[in-house]
Measured scan of single mutants.
Amino acid sequence: MGFKLLSKLLVYLTASIMAIASPLAFSVDSSGEYPTVSEIPVGEVRLYQIADGVWSHIATQSFDGAVYPSNGLIVRDGDELLLIDTAWGAKNTAALLAEIEKQIGLPVTRAVSTHFHDDRVGGVDVLRAAGVATYASPSTRRLAEVEGNEIPTHSLEGLSSSGDAVRFGPVELFYPGAAHSTDNLIVYVPSASVLYGGCAIYELSRTSAGNVADADLAEWPTSIERIQQHYPEAQFVIPGHGLPGGLDLLKHTTNVVKAHTNRSVVE
Score class of each variant (00 low, 15 high):
Ser181Phe: 00
Ala51Phe: 13
Ala213Pro: 04
Glu172Gln: 09
Met1Glu: 06
Ser30Ile: 03
Ile74Glu: 03
Ile20Leu: 09
Glu145Pro: 04
His180Asp: 00
Val75Ala: 11
Glu145Ile: 08
Arg76Asn: 04
Ala130Asn: 15
Tyr12Arg: 13
Ala209Gln: 03
Pro232Arg: 10
Ala111Phe: 04
Ser137Ile: 06
Ile104Met: 02
Phe63Cys: 09
Ala144Glu: 02
Gly197Val: 06
Phe3Asn: 03
Tyr68Pro: 04
Met18Asn: 02
Pro190Gly: 06
Ala87Thr: 12
Ala87His: 01
Ile17Val: 04
His154Ala: 11
Ile20Ala: 13
Ser30Lys: 15
Val256Arg: 14
Asn71Trp: 02
Ala66Asn: 15
Ile17His: 15
Ala234Asn: 15
Ser22Gln: 04
Gly148Arg: 10
Gly105Arg: 12
Val75Pro: 00
Ala94Met: 08
Asp125Ala: 09
Ala21Phe: 07
Asp29Ala: 08
Gly198Met: 00
Pro239His: 01
Leu96Lys: 02
Met1Pro: 11
Tyr196Arg: 00
Leu159Arg: 01
Gly198Gln: 01
Ala19Glu: 05
Pro221Gln: 09
Glu39Cys: 11
His241Ile: 01
Val166Asp: 13
Ile224Asn: 13
Ser70Arg: 01
His117Glu: 00
Ile84Pro: 01
Asp64Glu: 03
Thr261Ala: 06
Tyr135Glu: 00
Glu203Ala: 03
Leu13Phe: 15
His230Arg: 08
Phe26Tyr: 04
Asn211Tyr: 03
Leu82His: 05
His241Ser: 01
Tyr196His: 03
Gly240Ile: 02
Pro170Ala: 05
Ser62Asp: 08
Val37Thr: 08
His117Met: 00
Tyr135Asp: 00
Glu157Ser: 08
Phe174Lys: 03
Arg128Ser: 12
Thr93Val: 12
Asn92Trp: 11
Val266Ile: 00
Val146Ser: 07
Leu83Cys: 12
Thr14Phe: 02
Asp164Asn: 14
Leu82Pro: 02
Arg76Thr: 06
Gly105Met: 15
Asp216Cys: 04
Arg128Glu: 06
Gly158Arg: 07
Arg120Ser: 09
Lys102Thr: 15
Ile201Gly: 01
Gly210Ala: 07
Val189Tyr: 05
His260Gln: 08
Asp214Thr: 15
Val108Leu: 13
Ile40Asn: 05
Trp220Glu: 02
Ile201Tyr: 00
Leu185Trp: 00
Gly197Thr: 04
Arg226Glu: 15
Ser27Gln: 14
Ala25Cys: 10
Trp220Lys: 01
Ala192Trp: 09
Asp85Ala: 00
Gly122Tyr: 02
Gly240Thr: 02
Ala209Asn: 02
Gly105Glu: 15
Leu159Gly: 04
Asp64Cys: 15
Ser56Leu: 07
Trp55Met: 10
Val194Ala: 07
Leu73Phe: 13
Ala215Thr: 09
Ile100Leu: 04
Thr207Ile: 15
Ile151Val: 14
Ser193Ile: 04
Glu39Trp: 07
Leu82Phe: 06
Leu217Glu: 04
Ala94Gln: 08
Pro239Arg: 02
Ala19Asn: 12
Pro170Glu: 08
Gly246Val: 08
Pro152Gly: 12
Ala130Ile: 15
Asp79Tyr: 14
Phe116Ala: 14
Val126Gln: 15
Val256Ala: 13
Ser223Pro: 04
Arg46Val: 14
Leu250Met: 03
Ala51Ser: 09
Ser56His: 06
His115Ala: 01
Val108Gln: 01
Asn71Ile: 04
Ala21Asp: 14
Ile227Cys: 10
